[in-house]
Write a protein that binds this DNA or RNA. Structure first.
Length: 457
DNA sequence: GTTGTCTGCCCC
DNA sequence: ATTCTGC
DNA sequence: GCAGAATGGGCAGACAAC
């Protein structure tokens, strides 16, 4: 049994406890008047302080020496220490956005498919780059360090930049897929060894020339951003943005984003509730991707052919399933992905019960999958599930459409989740290998997709 | 040296 | 990453 | 509405096995 007692999982709970403890042991000052619930207020203060300075070695001593009520003064944003990146909430369509933000000025930006980065530039010219999870990435991106140092304007002596690092082909002047970005080396990278270039797509500024901007409105922060850097193709660009509240215009912008190899849009208010909220998935930022929308985006009908026992709250039911598409030519089921999300507890219980009676001792001879995949149980092919995905990718392990796109690699799904059970389909009516290959080819990265160069007339 | 397997306060 | 659920 | 807990693909690195 490996019980990893590790702080960080129930972080919010721990911070709450810390805040309450601080109130009970408070001996420095009394809570400000006008406070209804000192306990709740203290929790807020501690959480706020931590989000801006996530260092227990600073927070706890500050609590002990100067008390909770002074914490906003004793623990504030510090250059060189990463703050939690502001997150966005999924949204189902343009109409939901227009409705939620009516009477409010808001902006839409491209959501680039790369790696989030928070770049700190200190007065002494040193640079630190942090990942979405506050990992120190500086050694992975010496090219980014050089680019920001070169492209900041001379008036800029310090800054914190929020941006997306995206793989980029500077000859063809186009964005490359996330899968290409992830092939970059991760440690002690030297400039001359870099094979995959990145372009910085900047969208926010949290600090400039000694001035914290977190509590400023986006309008102000963006102004600071635009005035602090020179753009340069293939190296540093501001995220494409429009300010509009017109449904059609936003819809067109979303299409443009997808055409431009982006995942979708991020929508942000400019003035109202427009401060930078570290780590919070508050309503302030929304994300819109095609695969969130009903009846649009890639949807496939797939057959569960195996499963894995669940853990934790999934103990006693299956926790994940291996899915396959059907290859009509070879009359075989080819693995395409595992799936473990999108099930309500009731549906998961149902499916587990139903498939438990379809367990077979060995995989069928007509199941095609990698030997490295070792499910706990195999099934007779009996059900068809509708599954949604953000993307189709060339896979090192799965076998869907093998031989069509690539001679010996199959296709898999990015972010697969269950939509519903297709009671009306038999396994042989599942998505075919040809259909999978076709869906892969028609993605915007891949060569001949654009025009209506398609079949019949 | 090569190949295989597993892990990551991983990235998405 | 996505999704669901208890509070 | 938020925090937490289930779960996905896939990469470089680390390390074990050969």
């Amino acid at each position: 049994m490996q019980a990893k007692l590790r702080i960080g999982l129930a972080e919010q709970t721990l911070l709450a406890a810390l805040g309450q403890a601080a109130v009970y042991s408070e001996k420095h000052s009394t809570p400000p008047p006008n406070i209804q619930s000192p306990l709740e207020e203290a929790v807020k203060i501690v959480k706020q302080a931590y989000s801006v300075l996530p260092v227990y070695d600073k927070i706890v001593p500050a609590l002990l020496s100067d008390g909770v009520w002074n914490l906003p003064n004793t623990c504030s944003f510090t250059l060189g220490v990463p703050v939690g990146p502001m997150l966005a909430k999924p949204t189902k369509g343009v109409s939901e956005i227009v409705q939620k933000f009516q009477n409010t000025e808001y902006t839409c930006e491209f959501k680039y498919d790369g790696e989030r980065a928070q770049i700190h530039y200190l007065e002494d010219g040193s640079v630190e780059i942090y990942s979405r999870n506050a990992e120190r990435n500086t050694g992975k991106f010496p090219d980014v360090v050089a680019a920001v140092s070169r492209l900041k304007k001379s008036s800029v002596g310090s800054f914190v930049l929020d941006c997306e690092l995206v793989a980029y082909d500077r000859e063809k002047q186009k964005i490359l897929p996330f899968q290409v970005l992830s092939t970059r080396a991760r440690k002690n990278v030297v400039m001359s060894d870099i094979k995959v270039n990145v372009c910085i797509y900047a969208f926010d500024m949290l600090y400039l020339n000694g001035r914290p901007l977190i509590q400023e409105e986006l309008k102000v922060r963006r102004e600071c951003l635009y005035e602090s850097f020179e753009e340069e193709a293939g190296f540093f660009k501001f995220a494409s943005a429009i300010t509009s509240n017109d449904i059609d215009e936003i819809q067109k912008f979303l299409d443009a984003a997808v055409d431009g190899s982006c995942e979708g849009l991020i929508i942000k208010t400019m003035n109202k509730d427009a401060t930078y909220e570290p780590s919070k998935r508050s309503l302030n930022w929304l994300k819109l991707k095609k695969d969130y929308m009903d009846s649009i985006g890639d949807s496939l009908d797939l057959v569960p052919i195996a499963a894995f026992h669940g853990r934790g709250k999934r103990t006693g039911v299956y926790g994940a399933f291996l899915l396959a598409c059907y290859d009509n030519n070879n009359e075989e089921y080819q693995s395409i992905c595992k799936i473990g999300t999108g099930f309500s507890e009731a549906v998961l219980e149902e499916r587990s019960a139903s498939l438990r009676s379809k367990v077979i001792p060995k995989p069928k001879s007509y199941y095609r999958y990698a030997e490295t995949i070792t499910p706990d149980v195999w099934f007779e092919p009996t059900e068809v599930w509708e599954v949604k995905a953000a993307d189709l990718t060339i896979s090192p392990v799965h076998r869907a459409a093998i031989g069509i796109i690539d001679p010996d690699k199959g296709i898999s799904l990015r972010f697969p989740r269950l939509v519903r059970v297709r009671e009306d389909k038999t396994p042989e009516q599942a998505s075919s290998s040809e259909q999978v290959a076709e869906m892969y080819s028609s993605q915007s990265h891949n060569q001949s997709n654009n025009q209506d160069d398609n079949e019949d007339d």
